[in-house]
């Protein structure tokens, strides 16, 4: 029994030691990364976000993360943190411009282009479907060719 108790204590100590050395990662990292994904890294020639920038010792990423950590600890939410970052570094720090003012055009333009494209396609379809003058009667030989053509077209791409 004594041996069992010693062994149990040993296991408990080992487990508690193990527990001390096991981490599920920097607790703040997930939120830090999520906010970082919305911020554009400004190190040259990086074109990634602060969250994605993996340049070793990136000065901008480290500086921004160092500022965000205390904000997260203080309980600021993502919107407030992004606003503070924008205030400090300007609009350029946001990975996507806010959908306001001229920048709204940035978001709308692709869909406007798609809408215009749809109108163009509609016009093309209408033009292609416009009835053409009825051709004069054709010979039975031509009819045979037409039947063959339709059969072959059905087999093709």
């Amino acid at each position: 029994m004594k041996r069992f108790g010693t062994a149990s204590a040993g296991v408990l100590v080992a487990l508690s030691l193990a527990a001390q050395t096991v981490s599920t990662g920097d607790k703040m990292h997930g939120r830090l990364r999520a906010i970082g994904e919305k911020l554009k890294c400004q190190c040259t020639p990086c074109s990634y976000t602060v969250g994605s920038c993996n340049m070793l010792n990136c000065h901008f990423r480290d500086e921004v993360n160092a500022q965000i950590r205390p904000m997260l600890t203080a309980g600021l939410d993502e919107t407030a943190i992004l606003a503070k970052m924008r205030e400090k570094y300007g609009l350029v720090v946001l990975a996507a411009p806010p959908a306001e003012g001229f920048n709204l055009l940035g978001y709308l333009m692709p869909f406007l282009a798609l809408a215009v494209g749809l109108l163009v396609v509609r016009q093309v379809i209408l033009r292609w479907r416009r009835p053409r003058p009825t051709p004069a009667p054709v010979s039975p030989a031509i009819d045979r060719f037409r039947d063959q053509m339709e059969k072959e077209l059905a087999d093709l791409e």
Binding site: S47, S52, V92, V93, A95, A96, P97, G106
Partner: peptide, 8 residues
Amino acid sequence: QISVGPPF
């Protein structure tokens, strides 16, 4: 100056 990145 603005940035247009993955979120956009």
